[in-house]
């Protein structure tokens, strides 16, 4: 077990390393004009040279990468080229907003999609048809369009929710809840429709397995067969679906935060992107990849726990 975790952590670190090199070299392409972007068109060549030296842009790429890497290993992700705010601290203030939404949305998706998916697989009939149609509609409308529709109708026209965030330091939990309700709904609709569809097929596949018939022949009740045996065997497939949805959501949440003007990672990422603010972009990407690696590790551990065959090997 320990060696399994260490192995996965090791490969995660390798992935993190590879991604950091890739992203760093990509951003190198655009770093030539950064000093001019910061100082404006009137800047003299001398001023530009000074700025470049200040940002370390006069160094060769390898030297720059290693200085970033040694900083990152110490927890120092550098400072924004444009605002001079340390990346680590601006991430720290924004991550809670983003991750609260992602966590709440994923928990709800896991619960609702499982309930609906199992109901569709077991009852078939109209429940099944509703799930199938829901999956088509959910696939057809991108999550951010759902967000736009929700905010236009429920917040702006009907006024049930605040259209933009009221999150600020010191506001109460109810303000948080009200501000996050619509964004979370926008995040989870696609996940629920897609997830329910996939969980449905996973459960149907398990229901057709031979051992289910044998369990029934032994006098085990239908409910026990479903909840103890079928769901457990379908769980790895469901977990994989959910983990992929979570990875996708880390991107989707950027647009949702923009729509609802939430002070999460999204606006930071978008601003940094349009300015090619390398330290911030690196910080956002690295953080995201770390989340993905942790999620994948948790999914692997859960799968090992669910499936004794994996556990042994």
């Amino acid at each position: 077990m320990i060696t399994f975790i260490l192995k996965r952590l090791g490969s995660g670190i390798v992935v993190l390393f590879v991604v950091s090199i890739l992203v760093f070299s990509l951003l190198y392409v655009s770093s030539g004009s950064i000093a001019r972007n910061i100082l404006g068109d009137q800047a003299t060549p001398e001023q530009l040279a000074v700025k470049n030296a200040e940002l370390g842009l006069d160094q060769p790429i390898l030297a720059r990468y290693f200085s970033w890497l040694t900083g990152a290993l110490r927890g120092d992700l550098g400072a924004s080229w444009f605002t001079s705010e340390p990346v680590a601290s601006s991430l720290a203030t924004r991550i809670p907003v983003t991750m609260t939404m992602v966590f709440v949305a994923m928990t709800l998706i896991a619960i609702i999609a499982t309930l609906i998916g199992v109901a569709a697989a077991v009852k078939r009939g109209w429940v099944d048809r509703v799930v199938q149609i829901g999956a088509i509609i959910g696939d057809s409308i991108p999550g951010f369009v759902i967000g736009i529709i929700l905010v236009t109708i429920l917040a702006i026209q009907m006024g049930f929710f605040p259209a933009t965030s009221t999150i600020a330091p010191g506001v109460g939990a109810d303000a948080w809840a009200l501000s996050l309700a619509l964004p979370v709904i926008a995040l989870l609709i696609n996940g629920v429709t897609g997830g329910a569809q996939q969980i449905r097929s996973a459960v149907i596949k398990q229901l057709e397995r031979d051992y289910v018939r044998t369990l029934r022949s032994r006098g085990i009740g239908e409910r026990e067969v479903l909840f103890k045996h079928v769901l457990r065997s379908a769980a790895p497939a469901g977990l994989t679906v959910l983990s992929l949805q979570l990875i996708g959501m880390l991107g989707g949440v950027v647009i949702i935060e923009q729509i609802f003007a939430l002070p999460g990672m999204g606006p930071l990422a978008v601003a940094a992107t349009s300015q090619s603010d390398q330290p911030v972009v690196m910080g956002v990407v690295m953080y995201t990849v770390v989340v993905v690696i942790v999620v994948n590790l948790i999914v692997d551990l859960l799968n090992g726990w669910l499936n004794p065959k994996v556990r042994v090997s």
């Binding site: 990509l26 991107g251 992107t273 349009s274 993905v292």
Partner: peptide
């Protein structure tokens, strides 16, 4: 493949946008 699949699409595209305009 395992690396590509663990990257959120939009975040990668943001990086590409930062690099290439």
């Amino acid at each position: 493949v395992s690396i590509l699949m663990s990257l959120p699409g939009l975040i990668v595209l943001l990086t590409i946008r930062a690099a290439f305009g």
